[in-house]
Amino acid sequence: MLKVENLHAGYGSSEVLNGVSLHVKPGQVVALIGANGAGKTTTMRAISGMIRPTSGSVLLDGKAAQGMGAARIARIGLAHAPEGRKVFGPLSVEDNLLLGAFSRLPHFFGFHRKAEEELQRVYELFPRLLERRGQAAGTLSGGEQQMLAIARALMAKPKVILLDEPSMGLAPVIVQEVFNIIRRLKDAGITLLLVEQFAKSALEVADYAYVMEHGQIAVEGTPAELNKNDRVLAAYLG
């Protein structure tokens, strides 16, 4: 579904990614783990077009997506729930969700009716968001904002969701809840590329995983294989 080949990208004169290749098959949850500064988030940003890759290719459902702007990549079916959640603070929860479906709704009128079905589905998955649908997103707690960010990505009915550090800055109990949600998404057959600093938890939900070091993929394999790999642990605690 998502195929990344030899991706190079960076900020200004500095190159952060030196040739990243990875592959996400339909219905899979793939984890991308590694120490901070290894380039996980940069990989996500380069895939979704938030930064322009210097070379390499990104294929989304067989179509080349590299070098397009983020908005166009989003319109061809890639949803990116970015690091730090980035919900639209002043807007209501429901408006946030509607905007998640921006690219497939009419832009002036009648968008609400057309989004109704998807909204119901998302509210079923996240009942808390239904309770707070009229509230400004900025006033939600960190965990609720993370759920909103995931729900907003779902609204686009994307082919692939990129989920960047969903556990960041959250209390342990909430982190557990976030992982439960990821598991439910997996059961629903959603294709997911997950970046996580909590490698163990990520490996539990993932079908396949890549470990990044210094802007490259250092190790890859199924979670069972990686759990036996010393290098994986070494990437975290030396």
Binding site: S48, G49, M50, G69, A70, A71, R72, A74, R75, A79, H80, P82, K86, V87, F88, G89, P90, L91, D95, L98, L99, G100, F102, S103, L105, P106, H107, F108, F109, F111, R152, A156
Partner: peptide, 24 residues
């Protein structure tokens, strides 16, 4: 209108809006 809400979204967070397919 959804376009109007998109307008607000861009003012709130330009990058995130781009990720929703909204061209800044």
């Amino acid at each position: 209108t959804l376009l109007g809400k998109a307008f607000e979204a861009v003012s709130a967070d330009r990058d995130a809006a781009e990720l929703m397919g909204i061209s800044a």
